[in-house]
Computed example of a mutant assay.
Amino acid sequence: MKKFIFALILVAFQGSWLFAAEQVTVKGELVDLVCYIDHAARGEKHMKCGRTCLNAGLPPGLKGEDGKLYIIVGEHKPIGKEAAKYADQKVTVKGKLVSADGYHLIEDAEIIP
């Protein structure tokens, strides 16, 4: 019985480790997620639209040099207006990485040009 209870405790705690955040620094291109996901819009030709969309409140993302796409947010608040000035440019983002269900989120993000 003690082994069974111990196994249940291990399983319960194992799930919480999936959501543990780690500090990261990721380089890549800052994108407007809606246009990027909808029609792969990015780069210099999309810069004006990206700034408009981010200023309007659409979510920013980072297309990392590692090939992953990250959602970026401030400290549990939107960061789009701050990110707008860097739309479709190469930047470095520092923050806490969490991943779930195939999505990657950098929270408490600091954008470095």
Score class of each variant (00 low, 15 high):
residue 15 G to A: 13
residue 56 A to V: 02
residue 25 T to E: 15
residue 41 A to D: 07
residue 28 G to E: 04
residue 27 K to D: 14
residue 24 V to H: 08
residue 65 E to Y: 09
residue 18 L to V: 08
residue 57 G to P: 06
residue 50 G to R: 02
residue 55 N to Q: 15
residue 63 K to T: 01
residue 42 R to Q: 10
residue 24 V to E: 01
residue 56 A to I: 00
residue 59 P to L: 10
residue 48 K to Y: 08
residue 17 W to Q: 13
residue 51 R to A: 10
residue 38 D to G: 02
residue 46 H to Y: 08
residue 21 A to W: 02
residue 56 A to R: 09
residue 47 M to G: 07
residue 46 H to P: 03
residue 33 L to M: 10
residue 29 E to K: 01
residue 54 L to W: 02
residue 28 G to F: 01
residue 19 F to S: 11
residue 45 K to H: 10
residue 62 L to F: 05
residue 24 V to Y: 08
residue 30 L to M: 06
residue 65 E to C: 04
residue 51 R to I: 06
residue 39 H to R: 14
residue 55 N to F: 02
residue 16 S to N: 08
residue 62 L to W: 04
residue 63 K to W: 07
residue 46 H to N: 12
residue 29 E to N: 03
residue 21 A to F: 01
residue 26 V to A: 03
residue 18 L to P: 00
residue 61 G to V: 08
residue 16 S to C: 14
residue 63 K to P: 00
residue 27 K to W: 01
residue 33 L to S: 02
residue 29 E to M: 13
residue 65 E to S: 12
residue 53 C to N: 11
residue 28 G to N: 09
residue 38 D to T: 13
residue 37 I to A: 10
residue 51 R to T: 13
residue 41 A to S: 11
residue 48 K to R: 13
residue 23 Q to C: 00
residue 14 Q to Y: 12
residue 57 G to E: 07
residue 25 T to D: 07
residue 39 H to P: 00
residue 14 Q to G: 15
residue 15 G to P: 01
residue 49 C to R: 06
residue 25 T to N: 11
residue 61 G to T: 03
residue 19 F to I: 13
residue 63 K to A: 13
residue 34 V to A: 14
residue 32 D to S: 06
residue 34 V to W: 12
residue 15 G to M: 02
residue 54 L to D: 01
residue 26 V to Q: 08
residue 47 M to N: 09
residue 30 L to N: 03
residue 22 E to D: 11
residue 23 Q to N: 14
residue 22 E to K: 15
residue 37 I to N: 12
residue 50 G to M: 07
residue 61 G to I: 04
residue 31 V to A: 01
residue 67 G to R: 05
residue 19 F to T: 13
residue 49 C to E: 09
residue 58 L to I: 01
residue 54 L to P: 00
residue 62 L to T: 02
residue 57 G to M: 06
residue 30 L to F: 05
residue 43 G to D: 01
residue 23 Q to S: 15
residue 29 E to H: 02
residue 19 F to K: 04
residue 26 V to L: 03
residue 52 T to S: 14
residue 67 G to S: 08
residue 63 K to F: 15
residue 57 G to F: 08
residue 22 E to L: 05
residue 17 W to S: 11
residue 64 G to I: 02
residue 66 D to Q: 05
residue 34 V to Q: 14
residue 53 C to K: 03
residue 24 V to F: 11
residue 16 S to P: 00
residue 16 S to V: 15
residue 51 R to C: 07
residue 60 P to A: 05
residue 38 D to L: 10
residue 44 E to Q: 14
residue 42 R to T: 12
residue 26 V to H: 01
residue 37 I to F: 09
residue 40 A to F: 08
residue 32 D to I: 02
residue 65 E to R: 09
residue 56 A to P: 04
residue 60 P to I: 05
residue 34 V to H: 10
residue 38 D to M: 12
residue 60 P to L: 08
residue 22 E to Q: 15
residue 49 C to N: 08
residue 64 G to F: 09
residue 27 K to L: 02
residue 18 L to Q: 12
